[in-house]
Structures are given as structure tokens and as C-alpha cells.
């Protein structure tokens, strides 16, 4: 019986294809040049230049002054607080986002559309409003404060408040990243795993998770970048107590307002580096695991 071969998989050619682009849909060189030039100019002006200026300003007085900025105990405290907030907020949102995406894509229930809208809420409201909500709840006149202040402890103007605000603002990142992918993948793989005898947990860890791991990782990276960089909501709930409730972005603002430009830009360069590392990491992962990515169709 001849049932072999004829795979529709991409065949590796032993030579490069002669023409990589299709001449039919190509523009004339002039148009091409103009379009590419416009895009590059725009990117340089609005992305590259500001990014560069951060580093230029930070290094204006030499490397010594640059590193001295990180020796400041208040800066170190700000870094510590930012890391703590991210370390709590990101895992929490990892669990929330995964559960929400799981519930929305693998089950049918009443109010599903409402839940999806709710998840998007932090994206659509201004972070300042988000911060104010927590002030209204936990502030001196807030309805939860009497009980909370007595039994749990301070929320506003301390670490819990900052974590809460960060969780709120970064909530949609992971769920939003996962929902479209999991919707597209459907539930057949899970059903197949169950019919083969896998338990619910085995199905999740061995089938669902591998199918979404790239989207999940991407979501975590984005979530982390935002958690560390969040300004508005955190600013409202923080109280700006130096060395205690200042996160990196807040600390940068204070330094800048006090005309400590080198310090301000040095700390800012840290956040800029974080952004670049995030992007580099993402690109590296995509490059390193291109085969698997292609197999699971994502990004």
C-alpha cells in the first residue's frame, strides 16, 4: 500500500530561491525608498532619539557620576520596592490571567462577555482613576479603612497599596495575551488528552501549558515591564515617602524635580534598559525556538 510521503511540510531547498520578493506586488524604488525613509525617520525621532537622550543625559558627567547615582540609599530603596511590587504583582497576575483565560476559552457560562469586558477595564480607565479608587477604599475616609487599619494594617501610603495598584494596572496583560490564542486552539487537544487517560492536572501541564507557553512568557515579560514602569496609579497611592514608598518611576520624578538631572536620567536609564532587555529577550526566545513557535503557530 502506498501511503507514504507527500507531506505538506515546508521542504528545505538545497539552494536559495532566486527571487525572494514578488515583483508584481513591489513598488518602484523611489516609492520604496520614501516609505522606508519615512518610517525610519519617524522611529528615530520618536523612539530612538528619546531613548538615546536618556543615556546621553545620564552619562553627561561621566561614568563615575552615573554609578554614584545608584549608591544613593533612597535610590536603592526605590529599586527594592519596585522589584518587590513586580515580584508580587507578576506571579499574581500570572495566576489570575491564566485562570481567566482558561475559564473564558474552555468553558461556556453566563456573563462571559461581561467578564471579558471587566478584564479590559484597567486598560480603559486612566491609571490615576485606578489609584483614586484605592484611595477611596483605603483612605482616611475610605469605607474599608476602619476595619482594615485595625485588623490588617496600613494599605495606603505603604507597600500593600503599591502592590494593589500595580496588580490592578497590569491585570489584562497576561489574560489578553492568552485569550485569543486559547480561543483559536479550542478544546479538542484537551479532550484528546482526557480520552487518553490523562488527569485534569496532567492535561493542563502537558498539553495546555506547552501550547500557550510562548504567549504566556510574552505576557509575563510585558506585565513585568509595565509593573516596574507604572507611574500614575502608584503615584496616587504611594504618598511619595522617600526611602519608603517611592518606586523607581516616582523616584525619577522627584530627582528630576530637584534638578538632579544626572541621577534622574541614570535611574531612568535603568528602566530603559529593562525595556530593551525585555524586547531583546523576546526576540532571542523567538529566534531560539523558531521551530517550536512555528509548530504551535504563535507570534
Amino acid at each position: 500500500m502506498s501511503l507514504d510521503t507527500a507531506p505538506d511540510s515546508p521542504v528545505r531547498l538545497p539552494f536559495e530561491p532566486l527571487q525572494k520578493t514578488n515583483s508584481v506586488i513591489n513598488e518602484p524604488p523611489l516609492v520604496r525608498g520614501l516609505l522606508i525613509g519615512a518610517a525610519l525617520a519617524f522611529l528615530s525621532l520618536f523612539l530612538l532619539l528619546p531613548l538615546l537622550s536618556v543615556f546621553v543625559e545620564a552619562l553627561r558627567k561621566g561614568l563615575g557620576a552615573y554609578f554614584a547615582a545608584f549608591g544613593d540609599p533612597e535610590t536603592l530603596e526605590a529599586i527594592k520596592l519596585t522589584v518587590i511590587a513586580a515580584l508580587i504583582a507578576v506571579p499574581l497576575n500570572l495566576v489570575f490571567g491564566l485562570s481567566a483565560a482558561w475559564a473564558i476559552t474552555k468553558f461556556e457560562f453566563r456573563g462571559k462577555q461581561f467578564l471579558i469586558t471587566l478584564i479590559d477595564l484597567p486598560f480603559s480607565v486612566s491609571p490615576v482613576v485606578a489609584g483614586l479608587v484605592f484611595v477611596l477604599i483605603f483612605g482616611a475616609q475610605g469605607w474599608a479603612q476602619p476595619w482594615f487599619g485595625e485588623n490588617v494594617g496600613r494599605v495606603l501610603f505603604s507597600t500593600p497599596g503599591i502592590v494593589l495598584a500595580t496588580v490592578f494596572v497590569t491585570f489584562p496583560f497576561i489574560a489578553r495575551e492568552l485569550i485569543p490564542l486559547m480561543q483559536e486552539q479550542g478544546t479538542e487537544d484537551e479532550q484528546a488528552a482526557l480520552s487518553l487517560g490523562a488527569t485534569g492536572w496532567q492535561t493542563f501541564t502537558r498539553v495546555t501549558l506547552p501550547n500557550i507557553k510562548w504567549a504566556l512568557l510574552y505576557g509575563v515579560l510585558l506585565c513585568n515591564a509595565r509593573a516596574m514602569g507604572e507611574f500614575g496609579a502608584v503615584s496616587v497611592v504611594s504618598g511619595h515617602i522617600r526611602g519608603l514608598t517611592n518606586t523607581l518611576p516616582l523616584h525619577i520624578e522627584i530627582l528630576y524635580n530637584e534638578y538632579q538631572f544626572v541621577s534622574a536620567f541614570a535611574v531612568a536609564s535603568l528602566l530603559a534598559l529593562l525595556a530593551m532587555v525585555t524586547l531583546a529577550l523576546k526576540s532571542f526566545l523567538e529566534w531560539r525556538y523558531a521551530d517550536q513557535l512555528a509548530a504551535t503557530r504563535r507570534h
Partner: peptide
């Protein structure tokens, strides 16, 4: 139930 179920779209584990 230990049934061998073959799905219409095969549902092979892609990874």
C-alpha cells in the same frame, strides 16, 4: 472509559 477517540481534526499535540 478507556476509549480510543480519533478526532476529525486529529487533535495531535503540536509541541
Amino acid at each position: 472509559r478507556k476509549v480510543g477517540f480519533v478526532f476529525q481534526q486529529y487533535a495531535l499535540f503540536k509541541h
